[in-house]
Write a protein that binds this DNA or RNA. Structure first.
Lengths: 324, 324
DNA sequence: GTGAAAGCGCTAACAT
DNA sequence: ATGTTAGCGCTTTCAC
């Protein structure tokens, strides 16, 4: 392994000088600079980031904890996060908590040990709140924890828009289907916004929830079955993710229920995939790229010691397509 | 920040001893060990992984370079990779190359600078081959580079199985649609296996390829349009990914072509999503979990200095569902 | 404009 | 069974 010392020797200077040209700090004779660059080139030298981190007490690494990378929403979010982080000279250390409280705690500790400069926490289990008294910048997604800034889409508005649309389309027997409402997630606001809007019209909404946020097709399918097993003729469904919406639509059509004729269903997220289904899924668009960009921005601000807004709620919009 | 020194002082020992109990190395009096543990607990101490890496010249970090995290196949693969890595005490540094040669090279250098112990390279651009003369373990996915071990699914067999099935179902006007065949990817073998099998029956296959592997719905749609604009009545399509298959099916039905009655289409990957579509997609199953597990296994073997098999081809199978 | 030297937090001989 | 000491490769004061 080539080190600064090797470069220094070959260039006839000391490591101090090499360090200076690398970091572009202080005065260096153009000639010296040239020489050093040249030697670095010859030796195919790369500064050791680990040594640098130790010395500078800054790693330029951001930790990202997700509940499920394989879920299209999170993989898309991750893709953007990586992108913006990279644009800002930061690297991403990835953690996939799979909704397990224990794993989540371990990951937080691991990231701390790893000296990451900040954590983007999009995972959420019941009792992480106290554990998270970390001494480094944390930004949560869709989760509100005392004293920690968070970012999310306007879930409440999303629920309202979904309700308004379904109502406007004449639906009267309404259902909400989504992840567990047990966890104190901001996404529960989708249900709240939906319900309040529907109630205001004097109508009711029946809710179906998955087991503790398992992002699982089987689970979606099972729930969808339940919905249609019911004697009531449901005519409007708000699903808390496009994937659930797709599963519901599929199950509906298997039961001879036509979407959107007999039943309108509206999803959430606006996954790229939403347009691959037939009918194309009408949905509430979550501004994924903006969430990532803003998220990285906030995290980096915090890393630089600046004060950061606690509440960061990004706007959503209804994307009218074919399923409702 | 609490360091070993703080712990040592408070426990009335030296850092050596603390280091010993942490690494469980050498003889330590039970009493001392207890005391140290206790103090670490009190101080909420976490060893600094950066300092440790520097000292041990081992980071316990694996670099993963993907062409597109947001593609369901890769996010699923990534999920498994993270999982197995974590099980083995390794962390993942994520790089999303977006198929840009420049980014890919930078990432490799970045990972090198970061002192990762190994690289899982699932990205692939034209001229990376020479750049990759890295002095650390690399395992490529779906890409064969001189002197570097690789892992992949049995792409050729996949193509053959697809052809056999389509043929058995009576298809005669066959089309292959997939990523660009310009890049020297092992996945090109899917086409090869398909074509050879079809040709052996005395039939021909027409091929449509995307722009340099852009994983883009628009692109898929455009290609699908082209296919159906053709005067020939196509009755069998092999798509190199389930996502492409879905796009093709959608476009077909928009054109009044019924799948599988008028047209059979078969995908590749067997994404979890394949069953969310209607009709459910018949596909060639790529053993994603096994690829990840084996991949990590091989990489770690290489990290430990062991010799590693160059060629690692995992079996595929036909999953018969509704679209063909 | 450049160098010497201390230090980042940890590990690992080598002593004792 | 524990301590002393010398690094790991880099940055950063402080001299000159």
């Amino acid at each position: 392994m080539t080190t600064q010392k090797d470069v220094a020797e070959k260039a006839g200077v000391t490591v101090t000088t090499v360090s200076r040209v690398i970091n572009n700090r202080g005065y260096i004779a153009d000639e010296t600079r040239e020489k050093v660059y040249q030697v670095m080139e010859e030796l195919n030298y790369r500064p050791n980031a680990v040594a640098r981190s130790l010395s500078k007490r800054k790693s330029d690494i951001l930790g990202v904890i997700l509940p499920a990378v394989y879920h299209p929403f999170f993989s898309s979010l991750l893709s953007y996060l990586e992108n913006y982080a990279h644009q800002n000279g930061y690297k991403i250390m990835l953690c996939n908590s799979q909704m397990e409280a224990e794993k989540e705690k371990n990951y937080i500790n691991m990231l701390r040990a790893q000296q990451v400069d900040g954590i983007f926490l999009a995972s959420h289990t019941l009792d992480i709140a106290k554990e998270i008294k970390v001494d480094l910048p944390v930004l949560t997604f869709d989760r509100q924890i005392e004293g920690i800034p968070y970012i999310c889409s306007d879930n409440f508005k999303g629920g309202r828009l979904a309700a308004e649309h379904l109502l406007a389309e004449g639906a009267e027997e309404l259902v909400y289907i989504g992840g567990s409402l047990e966890l104190d997630l901001l996404s529960n606001q989708r249900f709240k916004g939906f319900k309040e809007t529907v109630n205001r019209k004097g109508l009711k909404v029946k809710k179906y929830q998955c087991q503790l946020n398992s992002f699982d097709r089987q689970e979606y399918k099972k729930l969808a079955r339940e919905i249609f097993r019911n004697k009531r003729k449901i005519d409007g469904i708000f699903a808390s993710s496009d994937l659930i919406a797709a599963a519901v639509i599929k199950e509906a059509e298997n039961n001879g229920i036509r979407v959107p004729d007999d039943l309108k269903v509206i999803g959430y997220d606006d996954l790229e995939l939403a347009r691959l289904f037939r009918p194309e899924i009408t949905t509430i668009r979550q501004p994924t790229a903006a969430i990532a960009r803003r998220g990285i921005e906030l995290l980096l601000k915090a890393v630089e010691g600046e004060e950061v807004e606690t509440e960061n709620i990004l706007d959503v919009e209804l994307i009218k397509r074919e399923s409702a």
